[in-house]
Amino acid sequence: MVDLIQFTASIISAMVSIIAGGIFFNAYSKEKKTARLLWAIAFLLYAIGHIVNAGVVGLEIPATSEEGTFLLWFYVALSGAGTTGIVLYATVPFLTRKAYVREILTLLFVGAYLIGSALFAFVLPDENLFAFINPATHVQVLNMSWWVVELLIPASFFIGIVFLRHYSISKTQWGLWIGLSFLIYAIILFIWPIADLKWLFYIIRTVSVAFLGYGGILLARD
């Protein structure tokens, strides 16, 4: 039987992300700043990833099957490495003028994310020493899920803190909403691999993406 809650939450998440991406496209059309365009692309990737996930849930493809694991890896690659990688790449230049910092940080994150997730999903066995943070059942797809969460939490915290710090300095509202969006995401990420709590994750995540979209609207108006 189709997990309707997860299916609906995934579709809503994808739709809200498309809106958020559109909002950043609009902000880019107001002022041609590359960072805004990159953010728009990042959230469209997030949406595509969630559509893939909705497909897996809707077609009842078991996550532990070869096809299901591959599709879930593809989903986390797009929505995690793709989105957060692009956001990091677009945001770091505002923090340091040393151009290589952006390249190094993005490469470290995306490299660790893609290589690690691929190893856990397809190469390493269920029970392996490297999947040291996994309180649930050790299956390949879950080892992969916990690995990407371990990387996404600090990255999202970092982005959230950067925007909240900007808000504390400049009092610009978009900094607050975008910062909160990433902070909430970082806080709830650890429940994403837990199957029974996925519905809760997706509901809170949808709210946090809405925060992001609202931040984007304020940014375009600013």
């Binding site: 700043k33 960072a35 805004r36 945001t91 505002f94 923090l95 950067v162 925007f163 710090r165 900007h166 300095i169 400049s170 900094g175 940014l219």
Partner: peptide
């Protein structure tokens, strides 16, 4: 004048 890097975002 308080300057934040993200002012140019």
């Amino acid at each position: 004048i308080t300057v934040s890097g993200l002012d140019d975002f």
